[in-house]
Every structure is written in structure tokens, then in C-alpha cells.
């Protein structure tokens, strides 16, 4: 089998907060030993709720932040071992689309300046006609080049964010909740645009979202995260979930059909704090299947094609 485009090995990221003259700093593991690979041309999804570490993982994979430990291989090359100059050269081949199109565009830049910036970072000028071509690719009129972000709607801003990611013709794009702050009607437009771009340009995506319904629609494979760790990898988007947490996520996703109403169960317990993780499975306090074993030890991710980190999987 060919080398995957992205291969992350045992990534960990520790953050410290607080601390001072008399106070000890507190540490938390935002990402705990995450390994994952993204094959060329695929859309890999990462799903989980706020605080599960999915955005930290996205930043680690592009080495926007430094991992505490672990490695990231991009097209066979170890990104963690690269010098800043070499990393910048590789960065042309990867890009990111951010969640909030309101704060990820500089309000004082025109759209043309936003789209020229990736070239400036690489110390070159955008080729003639490139800005107009980028706008066209994302379905915006070339006239918008002189607009400022505040003159655009949320959906248009996110299209600019996508155009900026495409500027250097990358192979790989990390999409960090690109539709979470948009209306459902605009979300569907953006997803359709991303699908079309992937087919036309042969892109590979890592799609990060809290919406399992959307991830199952858009992605080929789904990585489910809970409190910093991977709990399950669905080998196909339509695979039946094995981890109770993935089941819970599924049950919380409502279909637009009153005949398919979900019977909701009151989830016991609150999500534990990442500063104070329980000794056993992090989901045990909320899990209907939890036993003493789950509270005593942490299950590891295992199981070949469809790995799951659970002592009592479905």
C-alpha cells in the first residue's frame, strides 16, 4: 500500500495554565497519543464535542503549534524534524480553512490582499490573473477583489477563506469546522463547493466538525475523539458505530423527519475536566454500559479495520 499523505504517530500536546509566584501551574493533555493517517484523495473526518482536542489536533498536523511528543509525516517527510525554512517550503502544499470567517480575515485587508498574503509569505508575487481565478474557483465575482470583509456575508467570507487556502495550489487542506458559524442553507452550499473543488483539483481533506451527521455525509472515514483521545475510527462513513460515545453522538443528531424521532435518554454526569481526567475510561461517568473495569483502567484503541477504545463495544 502506498504511503498515506499524512501519517501522525502518537501525537501529544500538553498545555499549561496558571502558575505564578505561589501557585503551581496546572497542566492538561489536550491531545493524548493520537495516531491517524489520511490517504491521498480521501476526506478524513474528525468528530467530537468542544474541548475534545480536535482543533488542537488540526494545528498539530500542520505544525502550526509544536507537539509535546509524536511525529507527523507529510508525503513521507517528517515535518517535526524540518527546519523553519524547509517547513515553509512544504507549507505551500498544505493549507487550512478556519471555523470563524469573521475573525480569520483581517478587517483592514481587501479580499485581493487577503488572497495575496500566502504569496507574500513565500516571498513572491501572485501571478497575473491568479486572484481573479481564485475568486472564480470559489464562485465569487472578480469584482469582489476590492471589497473588505465587513462588506461580505458569512458565506462569502468563508468562500474567501477557501480561496486563500487554495492560493498556492496545495495537496492537502485541513478544514476546521468551516461551516459551524453559518446557516444550514449556506453550510450546504459550502460543502457542495468543497466537494466540487476536491474532485476538480484532486485535493485531500481533513474535515473537523462537531456534527456527526455532516461528517458521515461528507467523509470517507471518520475519527471520533473524546477528551483528547481517539475512541473509534469508522472505516466507512456509513459503518455502524461500536463505541457508546459514538452512539450517543448519533442519537443526538436529528434527522429532518418526525417519523424518525429519537428516543432521548438523559445522559448522566458531566464531561470530566481535562485537567483532572479519571483513571479509567474518560467516558465512563456518562456511559450506560460502563462497568467497574471501565473505571479502573483505560481501554486502548484496537481492532484492525474498525478500531475502538472500549471494554464493552457494540
Amino acid at each position: 500500500m502506498a504511503e498515506p499523505l499524512i501519517r501522525a504517530e502518537a501525537l501529544e500536546k500538553r498545555f499549561q495554565t496558571g502558575g505564578g509566584l505561589l501557585k503551581k501551574p496546572r497542566a492538561m493533555l489536550a491531545v493524548r497519543g493520537v495516531s491517524l493517517s489520511v490517504e491521498r484523495g480521501e476526506v478524513a473526518g474528525v468528530v467530537g464535542e468542544s474541548g475534545c482536542g480536535k482543533s488542537t489536533l488540526a494545528r498539530l498536523i500542520l505544525r502550526l503549534i509544536e507537539p509535546t511528543s509524536g511525529r507527523i509525516h507529510f508525503d513521507g517527510q517528517d515535518l517535526t524534524a524540518l527546519s523553519n525554512t524547509d517547513l515553509r517550503r512544504q507549507r505551500r502544499r498544505m493549507a487550512m480553512v478556519f471555523q470563524d470567517p469573521y475573525s480569520s480575515l483581517d478587517p483592514r485587508f481587501t479580499v485581493a490582499e487577503v488572497l495575496a498574503e500566502p504569496f507574500r509569505v513565500q516571498r513572491e508575487a501572485p501571478p497575473a490573473g491568479r486572484i481573479a481565478a481564485l475568486l472564480d474557483q470559489v464562485g465569487l465575482s472578480a469584482k469582489m477583489a476590492d471589497s473588505f470583509p465587513h462588506q461580505l456575508s458569512g458565506g462569502q467570507r468563508q468562500r474567501v477563506g477557501i480561496a486563500r487556502a487554495l492560493a498556492q495550489a496545495p495537496d492537502f487542506i485541513v478544514l476546521d469546522e468551516p461551516t459551524a458559524s453559518l446557516d444550514v442553507s449556506i453550510q450546504a452550499q459550502i460543502i457542495a463547493l468543497l466537494s466540487e473543488l476536491r474532485q476538480r483539483l484532486g485535493l485531500t481533506y481533513l474535515f473537523i466538525s462537531h456534527d456527526l451527521g455532516l461528517v458521515r455525509y461528507f467523509c470517507d472515514r471518520v475519527v471520533v475523539m473524546y477528551l483528547g483521545a481517539v475512541v473509534e475510527v469508522l472505516p466507512r462513513a456509513d459503518a455502524a458505530p461500536r463505541h457508546p460515545y459514538t452512539r450517543t453522538l448519533m442519537d443526538s443528531t436529528f434527522a429532518p423527519d418526525p417519523r424518525q424521532r429519537k428516543v432521548l435518554r438523559a445522559l448522566e454526569g458531566e464531561i470530566p475536566s481535562a485537567f483532572d481526567l479519571p483513571k479509567g475510561c474518560a467516558f465512563a461517568v456518562r456511559c450506560p454500559r460502563a462497568s467497574d473495569a471501565c473505571r479502573a483502567a483505560r481501554p486502548v484503541l484496537e481492532g484492525g479495520e474498525h478500531p475502538v477504545a472500549c471494554f464493552h463495544p457494540f
Binding site: V184, A188, Q189, R216, Y217, F218, P256
Partner: peptide
Amino acid sequence: LIDCIPREGMAPGSLTGIPGL
């Protein structure tokens, strides 16, 4: 509006959104 919500077994490409604003 109903068609903007992804549902189980939806064919790829069938989620198109509502054109315009």
C-alpha cells in the same frame, strides 16, 4: 430548508443548499 440537513444514506452531492442569500 429540509434538504439542507444531511440524512442517513443521502447520496453524495445531493446536499446543495439554497442558492443566493
